[in-house]
């Protein structure tokens, strides 16, 4: 068997000669070329940066109530003004990024791990297992996602963890479906057959050989669903059952400010902008990644 491997290697190397740079390097270069994707990338980086350094960047405690200064317009002291309780909107928007990021990352990672495991195993085993699992996933998908999130949030109880769990659960089937179709097409390829022939275990074949080849769509999907998780968190908070007070979620800021919107538009303008900008940025990054990671692009 060792002989077979050394025999195979030179031919592969020969085939890859024109493509000297690694695929990740190429992706990086493509990112710099696409203006929109770069914009998305920068926005995402800023979001992560802001969330990470919130205590340093925020001038005031986001929960600090000061009724005497309610509804102040943007000024040097309060760059984005204050809300109905006189809290600094700038600090609240910055801390809000933390919640959005936390909810987005956690729920996507959770959904990714569970969804990929379920979908990949179902596809690899095939037959009735595949059928049963995927019908369950279809059933979950059939619900409008926000409805299901609402329902799950009520079942799981009121906390930020249950919000993240609820968002993760409604996203599992999407990951499962995506990985399933990739695994189905990869499963029949020669290299898998080869791996099987040399006696590798099913799990090793699945996670060591097939999965890395099905990674690109998952990365794209993760970014898109990450943006989506931010929106769902904001929606749940807007409906009053998302992040509990006094954590300054963007959705809560919108729903609290809504009744004063006519007289003090800045109360909802900035959290609204924060949501749209970060969702737009992450989506653009996702779109860019899809173009960049699309294997067909290589030959063009």
């Amino acid at each position: 068997m060792a002989v077979a491997r050394t025999d195979a290697n030179p031919s592969i190397r020969q085939f890859q000669v024109p493509e000297s740079r690694s695929p990740w390097r190429r992706a990086w270069r493509d990112l710099w070329r696409s203006k929109l994707a770069l914009f998305g990338f920068v926005v995402t980086i800023i979001l992560v940066f802001v969330a990470f350094f919130a205590p340093i960047l925020a001038p005031l405690d986001p929960a600090n109530i000061n009724i005497a200064e309610r509804f102040s317009l943007p000024s040097a002291e309060h760059p984005l003004g204050t809300d109905n309780f006189g809290r600094d909107i700038w600090s609240r928007v910055i801390y809000g990024a933390r919640i959005s990021l936390q909810v987005g990352v956690t729920s996507v990672i959770f959904a990714l791990i569970l969804g990929v495991s379920i979908g990949a195993i179902a596809a690899y085993i095939g037959g009735w297992v595949d059928n049963a699992v995927m019908r369950i996933m279809d059933a979950v998908l059939a619900f409008p996602s926000i409805m299901l999130a609402l329902l799950l949030r009520f079942v799981l109880g009121p906390s930020i963890t249950s919000v993240m769990l609820a968002i993760a659960i409604i996203r599992i089937p999407i990951f499962a479906r995506t990985i399933r179709s990739s695994v189905l097409s990869e499963r029949e390829k020669e290299y898998v057959e080869a791996a099987r022939a040399i006696g590798q275990t099913h799990l090793r074949i699945l996670f060591r050989h097939i999965l890395p080849n099905a990674l690109a769509p998952l990365i794209v999907l993760s970014t898109v669903l990450f943006a989506n998780a931010i929106i769902i968190e904001a929606s749940l908070s807007f409906l009053g059952i998302g992040t509990p007070p006094p954590k300054p979620s963007w959705g809560i800021m919108l729903s609290d400010g809504r009744q004063f919107m006519q007289d003090y538009p800045h109360v909802v303008l900035f959290p609204g902008l924060a949501i749209s900008l970060s969702v737009l940025g992450i989506n653009l990054l996702g779109d860019g990644l899809r173009d960049i990671l699309d294997p067909r692009e290589v030959y063009q």
Partner: peptide, 30 residues
């Protein structure tokens, strides 16, 4: 256990109690 009607009320009470050293972890229930 907060009622959704009284979310604003709890945000203020939470802040006032915090100044005396009492931490209220507010959960809004339906």
């Amino acid at each position: 256990n907060g009622h959704p009607f009284y979310r604003d009320d709890w945000e203020i009470l939470q802040a006032q109690l915090a100044q005396a050293g009492i931490t209220a972890n507010v959960e809004i229930l339906d």
